[in-house]
Every structure is written in structure tokens, then in C-alpha cells.
């Protein structure tokens, strides 16, 4: 065999160096480019196997904790559209400003709702705003959906205006943070099924051997549910158990009234607010949560219509939420839709 077919040791070293250079450069390039990152994630997602992402496969809280006891497959299907309606007429338009509680569980379609002809949806996390659609001859309702932990951040006119306003804004919201390189790298390198056993072993050592709390999550008192730690403890207002001062309540009331006035002036006939309770609020019955929902449901000074989801989600609460995810499940989503539909059916009848 001719000796030229052999790769000398020196060349092997150089080939190794080239390989590291190309691989590392590609990694860095992907992490700096949101578009490339999306494509890479999509590529891994499509191929599955050992490269499949495990971040949301078993629920976002499993993705945070890697607790093997909570490795429960999460169905990916969304709620079926209504196949029969209480009333046949489609005499309302609905614009919804919401988050993953809606878009991960519902199809963006008017047939989720009673009486709705035209349905528009804008996410709190969208990069550009939604221009308020031209007014038809139908009445129009704005439905604001927000999860309790984000309520105080999001329910401010300056915040909602950036997402939904009469003019199309040219500015980009939620710009990519360049300092997310570390998170992006972690996702590309380690968010694969192959690493799952190692991650679960680490969690076992932390939680069961060293008796440490897993960063980002907390467990229900009976150990059967996981919660986002920020909803359970800490000083921030999104926590279900933090005391709400009078000043905070007055400020919230003021903001809600500003939101209501602004959208009534800009083509809406009614503004409805739904706050999805943090799961811990409804699941931990032995712990007294703060009075946010009581305040909103009994306060006559608030102009917009507060649709209180708390009672329906509290009933058989364990059936309405995932054990390893911070969201409700399809049953919880269904209850929400029923309640919203009750509100829509009663609109204009009082």
C-alpha cells in the first residue's frame, strides 16, 4: 500500500485542530443568530432519537428540574374546536391578547368561541405589535388573558399599547438578548435525549442525596405537583402568597381603568380580563394565598369586566393542571373556554 495513503500523525493533529475550529465556530455562529438557532432546533426536533429536545417534551417544569419522577409525556394536541354552538349568529368580533396558556392549548380560530365572526390573536411575547383591525359593523370585544405571575408586569397600559394599538408600530419588541449566548449554547449542546440520564442523575444527587432545592422549581406539599418557584416564594408580586399592599392594589386598579378607557376609545365595545391563577394557588388548599382575585372580582371601581376563572379551576383542581408543567391541561383549558363563552353569550343581554 503506498505510504501516501496513510495520514501522518502530524496531519492527524492538524485535522483535529480544523475539526475543533469549524465545530466551535459553527456553534458560536448559531448562538449569535436567532434564525440559525431556530433552524438548528427544528432540525434536531425533526430528527428525534438521541438528539430530540427534552426541554418541553415532558413539561416545562420537568425541563427545568430533570426530576425523573416527573418524566410524564405531555400530549401535544390542542383543544378541539366547538362543533356545535348554543347560538348560530356570529355577531361579535374578538381580539385576544394572551400567552402560552392560550396559544399552546387552543387553535387560533374563531370557532373556539360563541358568537365570534372574526378572531385576532396577539401574544404578549410577539416581536411586533398588532394593529387594531378595522371596525366592522359588529360589536368588538377585547379579551386580555394573562397568567397571575405576570399580571403586575403586563397589566399596564404602556405594556399593552406596545402589543395592541391603532397604529402599526415599526419597532421590534422583545429583541433577542445577546447575552443569551450561554443559554443558546446549552440548548444546542445539551438539550438532547442522550443527556437525559445524566441530568436525572444530577437531580437525584441534589434532591434526594444532598437534600437541596432544585433551582426554579418547588414541590407541592404531597409531592405530586411541581410549581415554578417564583410563584411560590420570593418577594416579587407574581408570587401567589406575597402580601398585596393597598398601594399595589390602587396602582393595579388605576392601570386597569386606563387600559379599559384606552381600548374603549379605540374601537372596542367591551374589555374583558382573565387572569389564570398560578397552579399553586388552586392546588395548595392548605395555604392561604393573597387576595388578588377577591380584590378584582369585588371591586366596583374597575371599569373592565373581570372574568373570574379561579372558582372553575379550583373545582377538582388536580384534574386541571399538569404535574410537571406550569400550565393547565386540556381539561383546564376547556373550563376556561366554557367560562369565556358564557361571558360572550351574555354580552349585550344585560
Amino acid at each position: 500500500m503506498p505510504s501516501s495513503l496513510f495520514i501522518s500523525s502530524f496531519n492527524m493533529k492538524k485535522i483535529g485542530a480544523y475539526f475543533i475550529l469549524i465545530f466551535s465556530s459553527l456553534l458560536l455562529l448559531i448562538c449569535y443568530s436567532p434564525e440559525l438557532l431556530k433552524r438548528t432546533a427544528h432540525f434536531f426536533g425533526e430528527n428525534g432519537g438521541v438528539f430530540a429536545s427534552t426541554r418541553y417534551q415532558y413539561g416545562d417544569l420537568y425541563g427545568l428540574s430533570n426530576d425523573a419522577k416527573f418524566r410524564i409525556p405531555k400530549p401535544e394536541n390542542t383543544l378541539k374546536l366547538l362543533d356545535s354552538f348554543v347560538v348560530d349568529s356570529k355577531d361579535l368580533d374578538l381580539v385576544m391578547l394572551g400567552d402560552s396558556y392560550f396559544y399552546s392549548f387552543f387553535q387560533t380560530n374563531a370557532n373556539n368561541f360563541e358568537r365570534i365572526k372574526q378572531f385576532d390573536f396577539v401574544r404578549w411575547s410577539d416581536k411586533t405589535n398588532l394593529q387594531i383591525p378595522p371596525k366592522s359593523n359588529r360589536k368588538r370585544i377585547l379579551l386580555i388573558e394573562v397568567v397571575e405571575r405576570n399580571a403586575f408586569d403586563h397589566l399596564q397600559l404602556s405594556f399593552t399599547k406596545k402589543r395592541l394599538s391603532p397604529e402599526k408600530s415599526g419597532t421590534t419588541l422583545n429583541e433577542e438578548n445577546p447575552f443569551l449566548v450561554e443559554n443558546n449554547l446549552e440548548a444546542i449542546l445539551f438539550d438532547h435525549a442522550f443527556f437525559r440520564p445524566f441530568k436525572e442523575l444530577k437531580t437525584y444527587i441534589w434532591k434526594d442525596f444532598l437534600k437541596k432545592e432544585i433551582p426554579g422549581v418547588r414541590y407541592s406539599s404531597d409531592g405530586s405537583f411541581m410549581y415554578l418557584s417564583e410563584t411560590v416564594e420570593g418577594s416579587q408580586v407574581g408570587n401567589s402568597f406575597s402580601y398585596l399592599s393597598e398601594m399595589e392594589k390602587v396602582s393595579l386598579e388605576k392601570q386597569l381603568n386606563q387600559i379599559n378607557s384606552y381600548y374603549l376609545k379605540n374601537g372596542f365595545d367591551k374589555v374583558c380580563l382573565t387572569i389564570i391563577p398560578n397552579p399553586v394557588r388552586v392546588l395548595e388548599k392548605g395555604r392561604k394565598a393573597n387576595d388578588l382575585f377577591d380584590f378584582l372580582s369585588t371591586n366596583k371601581n374597575i371599569g373592565l369586566s373581570f372574568v373570574n376563572v379561579l372558582p372553575v379551576l379550583s373545582k377538582n383542581a388536580e384534574q386541571n393542571f399538569y404535574r410537571s408543567d406550569s400550565h393547565w391541561n386540556l381539561k383546564g383549558a376547556e373550563k376556561y373556554r366554557s367560562l369565556v363563552n358564557e361571558t360572550l353569550l351574555s354580552f349585550g343581554k344585560n
Binding site: 493533529k13 492538524k14 485542530a17 480544523y18 475543533i20 475550529l21 465545530f23 466551535s24 465556530s25 456553534l27 458560536l28 448562538c31 449566548v181 450561554e182 449554547l185 446549552e186 449542546l189
Partner: peptide
């Protein structure tokens, strides 16, 4: 103690020997 450094180190060191 970051992944960013790991990648940076890989690029710089390999390029150093190739240059």
C-alpha cells in the same frame, strides 16, 4: 466557568495552531 468560554477556547486554540 461558561460554555461560551469553552467554545471560545476551542476556536482560539485550534486557530492558534493552524495559523
Amino acid at each position: 466557568n461558561s460554555l461560551h468560554f469553552l467554545v471560545f477556547f476551542g476556536i482560539v486554540t485550534s486557530a492558534y495552531f493552524l495559523l
